[in-house]
């Protein structure tokens, strides 16, 4: 009814209904929202809501369960998979850290992820800026050229890369792996940042140009500070991608002391075929892979989801 009597209220109410904070505030808003926006309460819907919350509960429980199991020894994990750790026992982590070579692997992963993500963004940002600001047939072609890479699966470049890097002694080398990661991330990062730079207002840059700043100075002093958010998003997305990358690392790295975490995890799993299952150590290893991502997600979660959905939204 409110739609008929006061149409101008609708835009005011719309944001409210979207920024639904759970609990009291929500239920207060509920009556104010027009009937069209109110959820129908039928049985299918209630089942759906129930199932969704069940999914949420199970997901959180799984994560918690995995972390808790990492504090129990293999025998008690196997005898009662639902049990709780009796004490805060870090021996699994110690064993994974020392015997499973997770220490060096973690170090390698941290270095590789940080370096390759940083250089990726450092190279992609200027390129994306140029592609977003200059309109010509050449830049359109270049944009297309970069986007092309999005569709090429990693296994296509795997073998030629191995052959090429082998020629210049960059296989089994973290430098080689970094270079490959940087090149492989170029399509997505250039694509994302081009979209982001396009969304920035041009007026500030024009003002800077009128004040006599060179194009380079405008980019460094005006655009980059404005684009901090987008660049951070691109960086974090690359951190996630490089931290988890497996196929290329598995192919290009052979010696244990250069393993990154996913490769170390695979070799740890495969050792168990010979040395018997060490579920405690394995759970500790899984925690070392997952928990840093959880930390990043809690810290910068909104950037991640927005970056991924914005990057995809066109």
């Amino acid at each position: 009814m409110s739609t008929l009597t006061a149409p101008d209220q609708v835009p005011n109410q719309a944001p409210d209904s979207r920024t639904d904070t759970p609990g009291k505030k929500r239920s207060k808003n509920y009556r104010g929202v027009s009937p069209a926006l109110r959820a129908e309460s039928n049985i299918i819907r209630s089942i759906g809501v129930f199932l969704l919350w069940a999914v949420v509960a199970v997901s959180i429980a799984m994560l918690l369960w995995m972390v808790l199991q990492a504090f129990r020894d293999t025998r008690s994990i196997l005898s009662s998979p639902w049990g709780m750790p009796e004490s805060l026992d870090f021996s699994n982590f110690v064993r994974a850290w020392t015997v499973g070579d997770f220490a060096t692997a973690t170090f390698n992963s941290v270095i590789t992820t940080a370096v390759s993500s940083f250089i990726t963004v450092a190279l992609a940002a200027p390129a994306a800026y140029y592609l977003s600001r200059v309109e010509s047939r050449l830049t359109n072609g270049l944009s297309l050229y970069f986007i092309l890479g999005l569709g090429i699966p990693a296994q296509v470049i795997l073998i030629p890369l191995f052959v090429m890097l082998n020629k210049v002694y960059l296989t089994d080398s973290l430098i080689g792996l970094n270079l490959v990661y940087i090149a492989g991330s170029m399509p997505f990062t250039v694509f994302l940042l081009t979209a982001f730079f396009r969304s920035l207002p041009m007026e500030m840059e024009e003002a800077a140009a009128l004040d006599g700043a060179t194009a380079l100075r405008t980019f460094v002093q005006i655009t980059l500070p404005l684009a901090k958010g987008g660049i951070l998003t691109a960086f974090v997305l690359q951190v996630v991608a490089h931290w988890n990358e497996t196929l290329l690392a598995l192919t290009l790295i052979q010696s244990t002391e250069k393993y990154t975490l996913p490769v170390a995890l695979i070799s740890f799993v495969q050792q168990q075929t010979y040395s018997g299952a060490d579920w405690g150590g394995l759970f500790a290893g899984l925690c070392i892979v997952v928990l840093p991502m959880l930390a990043i997600y809690i810290w910068l979660g909104r950037r991640l989801t927005e970056g991924l959905t914005l990057g995809m939204g066109k």
């Binding site: 190279l123 390129a127 270049l142 030629p160 490959v180 090149a183 250039v190």
Partner: peptide, 12 residues
């Protein structure tokens, strides 16, 4: 960006 991408992605 072009060089790295061409050398280690497009050429492979």
């Amino acid at each position: 960006a072009f060089i790295v991408y061409t050398l280690l992605f497009i050429i492979p």
